[in-house]
Simulated scan of single mutants.
Amino acid sequence: MSVKLRLSTVMASVTGAAACLAAAPAMAEEPPALTLNYTCAFPLIGMQPLVVRISSNLPAQLKVGEKTPAIEIITQDTVSAYAAKGLTTMYTATLSGNASAGAQIVQPNGKVLNLTVPNKIDPVTLPATGAFDVTSKGGAPAIAFTSAGEGKVTVGDMLLTMTPKDKDGALTGLGTFESECSQDPGQNNVLATIKVGDVPAPVRSYTATGSAVIKAGGPGTLPLTGGFEAKADGTTLTGPLKLNPGTASLKAFGFLPLSAAVALATDGDTTGTLAGGGLTTSGKASLTVTSISALGVPIGGGETCRTTAPVDLSLSAPVFDPATGGTLAGAFTLPALANCGLFGGLVGSLFQGPGNTLSLTLKAS
């Protein structure tokens, strides 16, 4: 007798004391599969070998505490012509019953849980001669692994409970019988291993181009370039927004042109929230005036000439697609500058104050 068993959707884990086999959307291209040899005890024909093929859509990875969807288990058994002849000899016309498969869940923390997965066998009409197929269906509720590491699912023995009936729907002389199926020793019975842990958020890369307008400097304009490397986790984009140093064009006293080498550097990560089709970001920055000149004559600045407090950069884009990007804009206030040289007061007056604006276009790369 040859039987093929396919567990089409199975997943295993534990929440508290409750556990069972469960399945989640497959994360690997090739689902786990396993072939095992069994020996089963059948009425009249005695001990018979079974070759069992088991496949599943067990995921390769899950988050800690992530629930699986409610699952469906399907077994497909092909009963050999020899076994079918034994059944028809006892006037069997139809066959129904249940199939139970043993399983073992090894959690990442080493705890072992033994389970039984019940399936209901659909009634089947036996052919006059030859082999026939038997299909059974079962299910399990959603569950989740509660610790990180590697989980393991192994397959154990099986029990078939069969009810043969004659052409009039009455029980045959076999009655309802059980067939115990034991795995042959020395086999690898691991169906799948599952990595349990936090799934890293995908990283999105954007180029950044735009400008800042410095109100106190005439107003002055600071061209900006840079990039944004952000982890995309659900409705958030979080990562470093890096802006390259640039040259600002300013005016003193409303008419004297000045040129300043300026670095607007962000401090730590910029956090963005996606909502309503747009993006709102928040972050901190500092402004450094490394040099400033009037008509080519240096008048101040330096590596220590910077804002005395963090600059709050809050920007928003009414339309933003994480896959392509969008344009962020917002206003900001520049705190006082310190350590800017002999003409530090003049330098500070060209930057300090509210009403500054920034526009930055992020383009996915």
Rank of each mutant, 00 (worst) to 15 (best):
E180K: 15
A192D: 06
V153H: 06
I214H: 04
P141T: 07
A232E: 07
L243M: 07
T247L: 12
G169N: 10
T236M: 01
P240V: 05
G246S: 14
A260Q: 06
F255N: 07
D198F: 05
L171K: 13
Y206S: 10
V213M: 09
A265N: 11
K137N: 04
D166N: 15
T209Y: 01
P200A: 15
T163L: 09
T172C: 10
A230T: 04
N189G: 04
S205D: 09
R204Q: 07
T221W: 00
T172P: 05
K231V: 07
A230E: 03
G130F: 05
V153F: 12
G151E: 07
D157R: 10
P141W: 12
V262E: 05
A252Y: 15
T161W: 00
Q187E: 07
P245Y: 12
Q187K: 08
F177P: 03
P123Y: 00
N188P: 01
M158V: 12
P219F: 06
K215S: 13
A192Y: 03
P245D: 08
T135Y: 05
Q187V: 05
F253L: 15
A261I: 08
N188V: 12
T207G: 11
A131T: 08
A131W: 02
T172Q: 09
P127H: 04
G151R: 03
P219I: 14
G254R: 04
I214D: 02
S211C: 00
E229F: 04
L191Q: 05
A148H: 02
K152F: 02
P223V: 10
L243F: 06
D233G: 03
V124C: 03
A192P: 00
L159S: 10
G156H: 11
N189V: 14
F132Q: 02
A261R: 12
L160W: 15
K215R: 14
E178F: 01
A261H: 09
T176G: 04
A192W: 03
A252K: 13
K152W: 03
A148Y: 05
A248D: 03
L191R: 06
T236D: 02
A128P: 00
G210V: 11
P141D: 08
F253I: 07
P219L: 08
F177Q: 12
L241K: 00
T146H: 03
M162V: 15
A230Q: 01
G234H: 09
F145K: 01
S147C: 04
K215Y: 00
T221N: 11
